[in-house]
């Protein structure tokens, strides 16, 4: 795709102190389960009380991150709002399922149903900033955020938008944490983030978060040079695709100054990362990120936020993000200066 896609501003709510002030990565201490919960800011600074009272957790989180990102980018009204979410508002979906049972399908409060709709955060952002233009929501596990980015890049390339707000949000509920534990998504024993890469056990540490970006064609310090998604690939296809992807951008593996990898310490899937780094990036500094935010459908959005933070502080020309979600959705995001 033609064009460069510059990042004008970012914002993230995550298990880290990422929302305000200077970011310093911290390894959390988990008390009772393998779940990294976000540190929630005071939402009242971003959302009117009359709107806030009805909103569930992920709606507040997503909306606030979006508003903060627009502020950080100096954009009052974007030309498009595009998000990705793997699971939307789990709390509302669960609440409505429980209400249906508890009240035997009578006298049901519509709010959880409305808010369980995956595009509700998008609608709220549009409503709050009065953006009547393009609005889209992708809900495809480890591709949700990536398609939001691709859509944003296409809009810019088509010349149909000046500033595009693109982002992602996912929450983890206790109930869904339990559901996923039944199919072995999480490590069985309580494992601290600092031990997750050495535990040598199957499963990840669960996480959650929200991150937004304003993309535009106006030059800024960091740009997205390329994006490639791979669905259920073999190891060979991951490697072939990486080679072609770098070649397409006129780069060698050695040109990559920093590799941000989605390694999670999950022995079922970490082999993808091990094989890739061993073959292409033996000397390249590698920064994993899931010890900071946990595993979730749109964790790559935190990786992109982290990449921008690093590139603003260090002299890095090219940064590559490689992430995969439980072996099915694999993504490369290439950043340039």
């Amino acid at each position: 795709m033609k064009g460069r896609f510059y990042i004008q501003g970012t914002a993230a709510i995550s298990p880290q102190e990422s929302f305000s002030g200077e970011f310093t990565p911290q390894l959390l201490t988990l008390a009772d389960k393998n779940l990294l919960r976000v540190k929630e800011p005071d939402y009242r600074a971003f959302i009117a009380p009359n709107s806030l009272r009805r909103m569930s957790r992920v709606l507040k989180m997503g909306l606030t991150t979006a508003i903060r990102c627009l502020q950080n980018s100096g954009v009052a009204v974007p030309d498009a709002i595009i998000t990705g979410t793997g699971k939307g508002s789990l709390h509302d979906t669960e609440r409505f399922l429980h209400d249906i049972r508890r009240y035997s399908e009578t006298a049901l409060n519509p709010t959880p149903f409305i808010q369980s709709t995956y595009n509700s955060v998008n609608g709220l952002v549009a409503l709050q900033v009065q953006c009547t233009e393009y609005n889209n929501t992708f809900v495809h596990r480890g591709f949700s955020f990536e398609h939001a980015l691709l859509d944003a890049m296409m809009l810019l390339s088509e010349g149909r938008a000046g500033n595009v707000l693109a982002g992602a949000f996912d929450e983890m509920s206790d109930e869904y944490f339990y559901i996923r534990s039944r199919i072995g998504s999480w490590k069985e024993q309580l494992t601290q983030p600092e031990e997750m890469f050495t535990a040598g056990t199957p499963g990840a540490l669960s996480g959650e978060g929200s991150a937004f970006f304003v993309l535009s064609s106006t030059p800024s310090d960091v740009h997205i040079a390329g994006l490639k998604m791979l669905y259920k690939p073999s190891q060979e296809r991951v490697h072939e695709t990486l080679e072609a992807f770098l070649r397409q951008h006129g780069l060698q593996p050695s040109d990559i100054g920093l590799l941000i990898s989605g390694r999670s310490g999950d022995t079922n899937f970490d082999h993808y990362y091990h094989a890739l780094t061993a073959q292409y990036f033996p000397q390249t500094p590698e920064v994993p990120f899931k010890q900071l935010c946990g595993e979730y459908d749109t964790a790559a959005s935190f990786a992109l936020w982290l990449a921008v933070e690093r590139m603003r502080k260090e002299e890095l020309r090219h940064v590559l993000i490689y992430n995969q979600f439980f072996g099915e959705q694999h993504t490369f995001i290439l950043l340039g200066r």
Binding site: Y118, N119, F138, H140, Y231
Partner: peptide, 9 residues
């Protein structure tokens, strides 16, 4: 399998 996506609006 080249591109697979789901939209929910």
């Amino acid at each position: 399998n080249e591109y697979v996506a789901t939209i929910s609006t």
